[in-house]
Design a protein around this nucleic acid. Sequence first.
DNA 1: TTGAAAGCGCTAACAG
DNA 2: CTGTTAGCGCTTTCAA
Lengths: 334, 334
Amino acid sequence: MASIRDVAQQAGVSPMTVSRVLNGGYPVKDSTRRRVLAAVKSLDYEPNLHGRGLRQARSRTVLVAGSGFVEPILDGIHKSAGELGYEVVLVHSPPQRADPAALSRRVRGGLAGGILFLNMIDEDAIRTLTALHPVVQCGSAADVPGTCTVTVDEERAAYELVERLVRQGRRRFAYVAMDLPGGPPSMTRRREQGIRRALAAQGLALEPERLVRMTHLRDDYAPALDLARRFAAMPEDVRPDAVVYDQNILAVACVNVLREAGLAVPGSVAVASMDDNPIDLVIQPTLTAVGRPYKAMGEEAMRMLVDRIENPEAPCRQVVFRHILEMRGSTDPA
Amino acid sequence: MASIRDVAQQAGVSPMTVSRVLNGGYPVKDSTRRRVLAAVKSLDYEPNLHGRGLRQARSRTVLVAGSGFVEPILDGIHKSAGELGYEVVLVHSPPQRADPAALSRRVRGGLAGGILFLNMIDEDAIRTLTALHPVVQCGSAADVPGTCTVTVDEERAAYELVERLVRQGRRRFAYVAMDLPGGPPSMTRRREQGIRRALAAQGLALEPERLVRMTHLRDDYAPALDLARRFAAMPEDVRPDAVVYDQNILAVACVNVLREAGLAVPGSVAVASMDDNPIDLVIQPTLTAVGRPYKAMGEEAMRMLVDRIENPEAPCRQVVFRHILEMRGSTDPA
DNA sequence: TTGAAAGCGCTAACAG
DNA sequence: CTGTTAGCGCTTTCAA
């Protein structure tokens, strides 16, 4: 593998000149530049990133940690990263076995300048790393004071969704809330709060038996199918007439199971998801969901992180985007 | 940020000793080791990975490139990587705008030792990079002679699926095949071949009007919904009685649309997917699909890649795993 | 506009 | 069991 000295030699210049040609920003005589570029090409030279990283002692790479890598968010992240001259590396960090130490090692080892958490619900990991490194959360946000976050207002989204459904005549609300070993994530708590407030405003309440806490399901969705079947089997005056889900796939399951059981959706039961997914548009009826301006959120989160890396003393910002209520067939009669 | 010399100084030893303590494999007096570790801890030292990488001129990191990062494959990859002492970074490479140059730059820049392609259908990118670097393909495999691949036998999977359906009495098969600007990927061609062979064996054929080529859909699934509606609207003697899909989400759409239109699934039409997804188990009826031993495939692919990196002269292996026909409600009456 | 020297942090090779 | 030397490839700094 050719090094910068090989290129320099072949071009008859010093390594410094090669460096200047490749990195730009310096005056180099045109004929020299051409000779250098020719040498680069003929030797198929590629700068060694360890050498560069070691010398510059700063990394133009960020880690994106999470598990469900939502395409449009990644698009936004890559867009900003490109504009700012940063590289993006994804690190698979599923909620229950995220490895904060490994992330930290990479940053402290100089391979990355900061961490962008994507829909990360492991709040301990976030807390730990936020104390050590430039960190931005995008999507779900742990309640860590003074953190940089890019979110939507989950409480308000839940409030507005429920308000709409109440106005459509729904009365017996169920909320299937995500639960984790350490208790529900703060995102879920905020949604629950929004639901309760919206109901209270109409003289209604979220009955305890209709608040279902369900572990974050990943492989086996049987508990969700069972729950939906139980809904279907309830006598009409007890059965919820509106069910709000944290996890999108569970809402999809619910729509399918209820219809299979002969219940009308949305006629007898309205189903909605606080999260959204392309699948929502292909099931029948289509699924009402809370959408987010993903691409813009990704772009903003990336800009924020770079800002934080290059300017660590500046105070953190919390950017809240407007959510989008996607009212669809599972709640609204055609 | 403390360097190895700070640690050495604090522990009253040479940097070399610190290095040996941290990297293991050398005899170090126990009392010395303890002093070093104490210094490491007190200074909160973390080795600089650029320094190490530069010196060792080899990277114990691999790139995993793809877009739909399937959880169990990643699990398998991480498992093998951990056992072999490798790090894994994911690089988001969506089919139509993968950036082979960026991948190559990382490898040639010394940041990674090889590339593991995950369900990558951009065959040009694969061809290019395979010629330059250690590469393993996992999942869909481009037809590049002499490549390392971990796959299932797509043709055989399609053959067996169709054979089963024919035996259940299906006659008018449709295949909704993935298409790309440069023509269908080889995976699709293999499946098509399997379907044709299976039909021919029973004196049937895949009629041209029932071979539907559909661009790889990502955001807007309207064409798939339209297609399903067209199926539903056909007179019974023309309508396919079995539809095989390349893209899982399109099959989900089909099941939902057909049922919405009042057609019985699987009574009137059987629907199956050559790909699988957790969603298949929650829709009703559940979706028949070709499953794969994902975790084992990920493990094997990672082992293969490391083997290739450390032993570039050895010939490539093509490992074929046994697929799993998951016959479910969308084809088999309960 | 170009070059020389120095050193980033680490470990291989050798010496003791 | 431990230390010394040297150098990986690059760019910062200083000099011309």
